[in-house]
């Protein structure tokens, strides 16, 4: 386990953290639903990168995080699809692309 390997591992994990942070920031500041959905996906990718990146700590290849990330991707795709369907319906019914202000 050399210092370079450690550095790369940490790099992946930190990029994951950065993506999560960016995604969360976008999720909070944007009102447009499509942008919020994209921000959520950025956040999702960040967490997958974190999951895989953290698992490479020199113990050899660990298949568990890979399997988890695969499941996570499937879930993310499904939820994005559902969100898009609801967004389209909402847009058609109300003509809006943002949610009404909080009640």
């Amino acid at each position: 386990m050399s210092a370079t390997v450690l550095a790369t591992d940490a790099l992946y994990a930190w990029v994951g953290v950065l993506l999560c942070g960016l995604g969360l920031f976008g999720f909070i500041i944007h009102r447009h639903l499509l942008r919020r959905l994209l921000a959520f996906n950025v956040m999702g990718s960040g967490s997958f990168l974190l999951l895989v990146g953290l698992a490479q700590d020199g113990r050899g290849i660990d298949p568990v995080p890979q399997a988890l990330v695969l499941t996570g991707i499937v879930v993310a795709v499904a939820s994005t699809a559902l969100a898009l369907v609801i967004f389209r319906r909402w847009h058609r019914v109300s003509g809006e692309s943002t949610l009404p202000e909080d009640v």
């Binding site: 999720f27 919020r36 959520f40 999951l51 953290l54 996570g72 939820s79 969100a83 609801i86 909402w90």
Partner: peptide, 23 residues
């Protein structure tokens, strides 16, 4: 839609926690 956004954010936070615990 509001519910979905809350649910997605909630489960993502949970997932990141799972990643850290596994690590």
């Amino acid at each position: 839609m509001r519910y979905l956004l809350a649910a997605l954010l909630g489960s993502l936070a949970y997932l990141i926690g799972v990643a850290l615990l596994y690590a």
